[in-house]
């Protein structure tokens, strides 16, 4: 099965608008997974109807039994995340759930209790199945939740004979990005022509290379700055990366979003046309072949 992940390094380059357009154009031939679990936006454009909701439990949170605790301070002393206060209250944001406190407690007063830190959903959209999630405010373990969403997407695709899992990835290069990238057969990198855009694009290219995933680049709003569009093009040439799409700046992408629509459903303007062309190339497996 093809697993196409849309990434960017830098946030706000247009990953979600482009991914949602692909899902719309695919005519029910794929499963889409929103793996940007701490800032999920795909649902605003694809209007999923939630069919199943599941709690996400990734780690445990220590619970200290006040009757057994002798206030010896060992747990506070050993914790490397400063997650236990001097009054033996747990800082549930700082705690990583490693359980060292429970091991060091001489009175066995600490038990690790499972903690729900978000939810994930199996849904249906007008264009096919969608898996998405929402991490609770300020929670960790986003990488594990990404893996969960992606795995479920893959299972649904397999069971329903769809041959493509389309993944809307998170910004950055850290653990949720690596989780979204693992197992991917190809990555589309959406870049913005600016000094920051170029800098972050180089980083995400390095990450994809590190995990051996073939990449293609789409330059979004390419007409905003021709100098940096050329810089991205020459960087791509040097790295032998195909530039598979040039999407022009189009204010209607924003107006479509405000109405909860993808640009390809909203109009047939310059951005919609460019995204259609890009999808025609990608759905033929252009990246995989490179």
């Amino acid at each position: 099965m093809r697993q196409l992940v849309v990434l960017s390094g830098k946030g706000g380059t247009g990953k979600t608008s482009i991914t949602a357009s692909f899902a719309t154009l695919s005519k029910d031939a794929l499963v889409v997974a929103d793996c940007d679990v701490d800032a999920p936006d795909l649902h605003f454009l694809l209007a999923p109807e939630i069919q199943e909701e599941h709690p996400f439990v990734a780690s445990g949170l220590p619970e200290i039994d006040g009757r057994k605790c002798i206030a010896c301070g060992r747990c506070i002393q050993f914790c490397r995340f400063d997650a236990i206060y001097f009054d033996y209250q747990i800082d549930d944001i700082a705690c990583e759930g490693c359980g060292l406190c429970a091991h060091v407690c001489p009175e066995a007063a600490i038990t690790m209790r499972p903690k729900v830190s978000g939810h994930w959903y199996e849904s249906m959209t007008a264009y096919g199945p969608m898996v998405h999630a929402r991490l609770d405010f300020g929670e960790g373990n986003s990488g594990k939740l990404v893996t969960q969403v992606k795995e479920q997407g893959r299972k649904i695709a397999e069971a329903s004979n769809r041959h493509l899992l389309l993944i809307d990835g998170p910004a950055g290069t850290g653990c949720p990005v690596i989780a979204a990238l693992s197992g991917a057969t190809e990555a589309l990198l959406v870049a913005e022509p600016s000094i920051s855009g170029l800098h972050d694009l180089k980083k995400i290219v390095a990450v994809c290379r590190h995990f051996d995933v073939p990449v293609g680049i789409c330059i979004n709003r390419h007409d905003i700055d021709s100098t940096y569009t050329e810089c991205i093009q020459s960087m791509a040439d040097m790295e032998s990366i195909p530039v598979v799409g040039h999407v022009p700046y189009d204010e209607n992408v924003t107006w479509a979003q405000l109405e909860g629509q993808t640009i390809v459903n909203y109009d047939e303007g310059p951005a919609a046309t460019a995204i259609r062309t890009l999808w025609a190339a990608l759905s033929n497996g252009e990246l995989e072949a490179t």
Partner: peptide, 24 residues
Amino acid sequence: PGTSCPTVEAIHGADFCVLVTEPT
């Protein structure tokens, strides 16, 4: 960006946090 560990780590303990957004 985001609302997970890296963002939390960065703003934890700050005296004030400016959240930059757009009207979409």
